[in-house]
Design a protein around this nucleic acid. Structure first.
Lengths: 159, 159
DNA sequence: AGAATATAGTTTCAATTGCAACTATAATGA
DNA sequence: TCATTATAGTTGCAATTGAAACTATATTCT
């Protein structure tokens, strides 16, 4: 018998929405960033210089989302573009000094929020949660994607 | 040091999106239902007859979403409306026979999908996951909701 | 080399979403 | 009782989102 209350996709969605809503509100209010913009910044902070394609792969963002987030950040002077000498269709993105400065402001706030969410969780529990989430993600992606292949499918955003 | 790859809100969002995308596709293709519509059906299957407000509470759906999902289901003849004698602003919703029939078709499919996602998880792990998700959800909701109260805030949907 | 096909990224358009305003009814309080 | 305020649900509008079409460059195949 199915009980919505205990149904994993439901629980996962509710938890994720609660977290997303909270974080999204905070990023927007304090830094004027939307979630994909924040993700893009976080990725560039870790990788120095990447093409939009690589950013998408690193952060599970579809190319449309990356394109729009990048445009907004370039507009604000937080990110710069540089041509890719080996492929004229593409280009490299990296943080400007301002972008890096913003990141060093946000990162601690993000970590603090995470800490708050995980307050009272043991190290074991934290790792278990990560592992479980990854396995579910893998299962959801691998699983029979129905009859028609959706190889080229664009991925949604999120936090 | 913040690593997006291990950042809980990110992992949670990615996992939830993967699951949502998969399930949503399946519900839509096989039953012509959007996620909130499916949720509404699942709730009514468990509760017999509820007002939109109660449905929202039971399924973490905001009132707009409930209103629209109900309209669509009534249109399809899967749900009926009956006036609420004790409050003229409200009304009761319940499944029609067709609605119930559809539910008995979907429920096993939903459970099968869940089983697939959780394949290889022990009973302990499943319970741990549920518990962790609930605690995170609670933490996200309780947490300092910023400066301005958002008591009356409408909740987003999801799976 | 030239044609055909594939890929990176952007833009357009349609669907979804949520907030705010609205309608209708109920509850409260002078 | 009548005015005020609160609540249930719906609708209009604006913002967000994604799929498909598009542009430009690259690769492959003859």
């Amino acid at each position: 018998m199915l009980k919505l209350e205990h149904f994993l996709p439901y629980r996962l969605s509710v938890a994720s929405n609660a977290v997303s809503t909270r974080i999204s509100l905070s990023y927007r209010k304090r830094f004027g960033l939307k979630i994909p913009e924040w993700r893009l910044i976080a990725i560039l902070a870790e990788h120095e210089s990447l093409t939009p394609l690589e950013i998408g792969q690193a952060g599970e963002l579809d190319k449309i989302t990356v394109s729009r987030a990048a445009a907004a950040l370039i507009e604000r002077g937080l990110v710069t573009q540089r041509r890719n000498p080996s492929d004229g269709r593409s280009h490299f993105l990296s943080l400007t000094n301002d972008g890096r400065a913003l990141y060093t402001e946000i990162a601690p706030a993000a970590l603090a929020m995470e800490a708050e969410l995980l307050a009272g969780f043991s190290a074991d529990q934290r790792e278990a949660l990560q592992a479980l989430l990854r396995r579910i993600e893998a299962a959801a992606q691998s699983a029979d994607v129905g009859t028609a292949a959706i190889a080229d499918c664009q991925q949604p955003a999120g936090v």
